[in-house]
Amino acid sequence: MLMMTMLIKESLIIQQERDLVYCRNRVKEVAAKIGMGIVNQTKLITATSEIARNMLIYGGGGTMRLEVVTKGKQEGIQLVFEDKGPGIADIQKAMQDGYTTGRSLGMGLPGAKRLVNEFVIQSAIGQGTTVKMLKWKNG
């Protein structure tokens, strides 16, 4: 059998609300393309939506890098969200359920973390925030 390796690696700009819809749709498209099941697809696009919105509201927008990654036989999608916003003062607090500095429900960051397989957040005051997450196809 022929093993096909898909080379998808792209960068999307998130500057306005409509970009969120485009991002979600693109992630869904790629997820479907690598054969990710519908539940995992839904989890991943929901996490995408949460993080992209956070980046838009708190970070003033930024970029999302989308990449199909493999580890052995596993295939998955890695997303890196990067903004040059004010940064998060207390990441531990931001990762708590129900904590918000805005008007949201405070479920975005902790919720997104629960929906993916790997989740790393880094932030520096005055420099910006980077969120890296990964969802395996069968994860």
């Binding site: 697809q41 479920m107 919720g111 629960r114 929906l115």
Partner: peptide, 14 residues
């Protein structure tokens, strides 16, 4: 509500 959406909402904490 689609089943996958329901599953996701619960895991999201909503």
């Amino acid at each position: 509500m689609q089943p996958a959406v329901a599953i996701t909402l619960i895991e999201l904490g909503l």
